[in-house]
Design a protein around this nucleic acid. Structure first.
Length: 432
RNA sequence: GCGUGGUUGGUGAAGUGGUUAACACGGCGGAUUGUGGUUCCGUUAUGCAAGGGUUCGAUCCCCUUACCGCGCCCCA
């Protein structure tokens, strides 16, 4: 038995680290005043077909599809936005007087792909969606979230790329112009680009093979096809980013793979040498037609999604350590089988008092037990033998100073309280 | 879906067509019958991803499959 391809188990150092990151993330969303949504991991297939786009690779060849026992077509969510939009509509959040709705989500997504660095079949995404405002303020705010988050984590080598696709009118005009432009040059483009030309001509622009071609460099730019309104929207977004001191790179070749984007699109890239091919940490943009497409009232929206695995890799690359040095408060050693009952009683009492406590479950000899107490980085070691149980006086050893104390059982908690109170150094052992 | 490299104990790994698969770390036990270090001793893979083939004999050669890594596609 082994894990399914493209999945991974969380434990050990990674487990500690991801919990820290997740906590920072939820704290950040509180500061931003966003509301937590959790939608199902599977939905009716139609949600994604209509939401993500019938022609996208994600939906046509990467979904986990299955029929449930009622013969319904279901799909494991390949991304978060479609489900959130479905929920937003179904719960009539468009009627919520608190506009805009600022929403965040976090959880596993599923795509049937060939795994490689920074890419899994089950992967975790964090994302936000803001519904109900077309104000460029919201575009800028959404972009600021990952930027601030990365800043809080200490990530330095990141780059923000932005572009605008314009509204549907601008976007359609541009797509047409692009096809007209590339049609006579098709021969010089790579094989993949021929497919893109038919399916999604915008994506020709970020082809890695042809990017240095002259035809590529002279291709029409999205910016030149923006109508007045779209252009002023984009200018405002940039103005607001400047106001927040967020650096960005205008990238006319930035287009995104999902069909639903309009106006602002952005990506944040990990620009670290040797990071791997999958170096886009997060990406998103505005999608003013999506809520309508999924059967809700016309509602503007903007959001982004962030891949957690890539983020964790980036933290490793920049050698950022988020795990605080921690150890337990007390380790209890029963000297023999006879003292185990007495020991677990003491252990239980300490835990109830809020002390992080562990004990020997392995009937180790005394030497191995001290070794174990070191492994656990225990502040105090409590030794319980025949003498101790008889007299109700415990032998407590300070593992740092090697001082030894005899303490009555009834005064144990008071003793530790006084010790930890006196020990104010932010070492993790101190109690408020 | 395409291409390419890999898979040997708890860990890092060496190795060979032929009886006991190095070495190191770690673990456990002991020397020390109630104290963490050092040192020493003992112990720690019935097995070299799985299945098939070639062979007198395969962990090693060949094929298939699985999984991992990297790149393409795509995307977070």
């Amino acid at each position: 038995m082994q894990k399914a391809k493209g999945t991974y188990d969380v434990f050990g150092e990674y487990g500690k680290k991801i919990r820290v990151v997740e906590n920072i993330l939820s704290d950040l969303m509180e500061v931003y005043d966003y509301e937590y949504f959790r939608t199902p991991i599977f939905e009716a297939s139609e949600v994604f077909h209509r939401g993500v786009g019938d022609t996208t690779d994600i939906v046509t060849k990467e979904t986990y599809d299955f029929k449930d026992r009622g013969d319904r077509d279901m799909t494991l969510r390949p991304e978060g936005t479609a489900g959130i939009v479905r929920s937003y509509i179904e719960n009539k959040y468009y009627g919520n007087p608190n506009v805009p709705s600022k929403i965040w989500y976090y959880g596993p997504m599923f795509r049937y792909e060939r795994p490689q660095s920074g890419r899994f079949r089950e992967f975790y995404q964090f994302g936000v969606e803001v519904f109900g405002s077309n104000d460029p303020l919201t575009d800028a705010e959404v972009i600021s979230i990952p930027v601030n988050f990365y800043k809080m984590l200490g990530l330095k080598q990141i780059k923000v790329h932005i572009n605008s696709l314009g509204d549907t009118e601008s976007r359609d005009n541009y797509r047409k112009a692009l096809k007209d432009y590339f049609r006579p040059h098709l021969d010089s483009l790579c094989e993949d680009c021929h497919v893109r030309f038919e399916k999604n001509p915008l994506r020709i622009l970020d082809c890695k093979v042809d990017k240095d071609l002259d035809v590529m460099k002279k291709a029409p730019k999205t910016i030149d096809f923006l109508n007045e309104e779209s252009k002023s929207h984009f200018d405002k977004v940039k103005e607001y980013l400047d106001a927040m001191n967020i650096e960005y790179i205008e990238d006319p070749n930035l287009v995104r793979g999902l069909d639903y984007y309009t106006h602002t699109v952005f990506e944040v890239e990990a620009s670290v040498e040797g990071f791997g091919a999958q170096n886009i940490l997060c990406g998103g943009g505005r999608y003013n037609k999506l809520v309508g497409t999924l059967g809700g009232p016309d509602t503007p929206g903007v959001g982004f999604a962030m891949g957690m695995e890539r983020l964790m890799t980036a933290l490793d690359y920049e050698k950022i350590n988020l795990i605080e040095e921690d150890g337990i408060d007390a380790y209890i050693i029963p000297m023999s089988e006879n003292e185990k009952g007495y020991s677990i009683g003491i252990c239980n009492a300490l835990r109830l008092s809020g002390y992080r406590t562990d004990m020997d479950y392995m009937s180790r000899n005394i030497k191995s037990n001290f070794k174990q107490s070191e492994r656990l980085n225990a502040k105090y070691v409590i030794i319980i033998g025949e003498e101790e149980t008889k007299n109700n006086v415990l032998t407590i050893k300070d593992n740092e100073t090697k001082d030894e104390y005899k303490v009555k059982v009834s005064e144990l908690v008071d003793f530790l309280d006084s010790k930890f109170d006196a020990h104010e150094c932010g070492c993790g052992h101190c109690h408020e």
